[in-house]
Write a protein that binds this DNA or RNA. Structure first.
Lengths: 333, 333
DNA sequence: TTGTATGCGTTATCAC
DNA sequence: GTGATAACGCATACAA
């Protein structure tokens, strides 16, 4: 790779002049031409990393996600990418594989002058390593999951209401034994969705049966196991609410394998509108989060922070969800 | 952020000594203790980017994909990540959004000492920019898509046979008017899959009807439009073969919306086993690519190249596919 | 306007 | 073993 030095030599100027040319400062027209020529000739282009070492700006942002391989993550990332792209930022995506260790590791990599800012969907409620990022002066915004004991910018969806509306819709169709496949309670949206479930039951005077609360990992296996556990009960639930896209898919699969008919033998209300939920018959009722908007808003906040605008810290955007109710929830009398 | 210089000062040694400690060279025990102490005290950790500037090694690899948001991409990436992780490499994922311009741009970013090697799923058959990467000495391996006029390491699946077997299975169930939703013919696997289709027809003495070949973008819209176009024909096909995961989903959607019953009114054979294909009834017949293996093999080749082992260049791995035939293909007599 | 010198955080090469 | 010091590729203050 040709460097700025090579360009200086070939154009018979100096590195200073070349650098000034590259950064748009005024230089003599003669030199400009010679430098242009040399750059083309050497196929030179600027090394943005080395530049970042000096300027502390790389025009790159890091995105760290606990699991890349699902609709939620990739949709949100697409939303972010739109915005970042429009503002001239490149994105670098990393997967923490649901491991706090990996999360710390990748965050460290980002901090090493690799990126100008970070969007993080944290693995869980741990806060110390995030706080260190903040103290280092690197802008960071949380996405989808806030962290309980941390002041930090963030964009989340209104999980409590999302879950509440779902459970309410189930109740309105006449169900009383409503189960939830909840997520780990050290994860923020999982907490909130369980809270929404509980609140709805309370508002409609339905007593909570703790056997109907299955705390699972937010994975397909988690959803699958949840169904399995409910189905062997003496008095199984008539309707089941799942807490995210993956548990919904897992639950669907388990129900299918047991030969049960959704909307007849058992009712299902999921979270996040995957293709599966839309294309299967009956369609699955779901809470829909504005995934791309979550991505876009996170990006917008981060950009404003990277520009040095720290007004209103911490900004927490809580975006509204919608529900789609289908025949996957049976109307009972 | 504390630097090596701060550590040297606090531990009353020199940057040289600290660096040697950090890199595992022998140093006096007294100093070792003092340095350890200082590192802990300052919460220092090494800046891998600055180090990379000097050593030309960052233990990071770049992965560039034309579209992140689908099963294919994320599954393959998971496979890679397993291997890279085991070898101590971090991965950085970028999306070229199906744009050659973006592909060049991101490749440039990678080349700027950001990564030690690259895995690329190219947008199309353009080769010049890839050749420049090779000439710069940066190892690169192509994934899923080879490039026609380029010598380069690569891992692909056996698309010709995959498509052949699918079409053969359709023929064996008695179909004669078999359509294909093919991809753009400047994309390698799309070429190969069309070739497999043609070859199967030829081997079974079925004349090619060019109206039954719909060249679409490899997107949901592409698949959707393909179906739409076939359905308005005077003599529509009885079976349709789609070229990738996205066109399969789009085709499925279009068929659903038209109220046609798969396996009755029309037969469908897809590519890539998404959740949708498995969970819908009847299940969709598909060609299954070994996604994670594609990822793992690409990673293994890249690692060996990054270690300086260039034997057998160019290595091209062509992995076998499997087919699953279901009642989505009607048996006609 | 221009070139030179210095520094970003690290490693590597020296003498010592 | 150790401590200065020169690189890595670039930006920038400064003197010219």
């Amino acid at each position: 790779m040709a460097t700025i030095k090579d360009v200086a030599k070939l154009s018979e100027t100096s590195v200073g002049t070349v650098s000034r040319y590259l950064n748009g400062y005024p230089i003599k027209t003669v030199n400009k031409e010679k430098i242009k020529e040399a750059i083309k000739c050497l196929n030179f282009s600027i090394n943005s990393i080395a530049r970042g070492l000096k300027t502390n700006k790389t025009f790159t942002v890091g995105i760290l996600i606990p699991k890349l391989a699902n609709l939620f993550s990739t949709s949100v990332i697409e939303g972010m990418d739109q915005v970042f792209d429009a503002f001239g930022y490149s994105i670098l995506v990393c997967d923490s594989k649901n491991s706090l260790e990996k999360e710390k590791e990748k965050l460290k990599l980002f901090k090493d002058k690799l990126v100008d800012g970070i969007i993080l969907m944290p693995v869980n409620n741990s806060e110390q390593h995030i706080r260190e990022i903040q103290e280092s002066g690197m802008p960071i915004v949380l996405m989808d999951r806030l962290v309980n004991n941390l002041q930090c910018d963030g964009v989340v969806s209104d999980n409590v209401n999302g879950a509440y509306q779902a459970v309410e819709a189930i109740i309105n169709r006449g169900h009383r034994r409503i189960a939830i496949i909840a997520g780990p309670q050290n994860i923020y949206p999982a907490q909130e969705r369980l809270e929404g479930y509980l609140r709805a039951l309370k508002d409609y005077n339905i007593e909570v049966d703790h056997n109907l609360i299955y705390e699972a990992e937010l994975t397909r296996e988690g959803g699958y196991q949840g169904i399995t556990s409910f189905c062997v009960m003496d008095e199984p639930p008539t309707a089941i609410f799942t807490s995210n896209d993956e548990t919904t898919i897992g639950a669907y699969k388990a129900i299918l394998e047991r030969g049960l008919v959704i909307g007849e033998d058992i009712s299902l209300f999921g979270y996040d509108q995957t293709e599966l939920c839309q294309m299967v018959r009956p369609q699955i009722s779901v809470v829909i989060q504005p995934l791309e908007t979550i991505g876009r808003r996170s990006a917008e906040i981060l950009i404003s922070r990277m520009k040095g605008n720290y007004t209103g810290f911490p900004i927490v955007n809580r975006l509204k969800t919608e529900i789609v109710v289908t025949d996957s929830v049976k109307t009972v009398s």
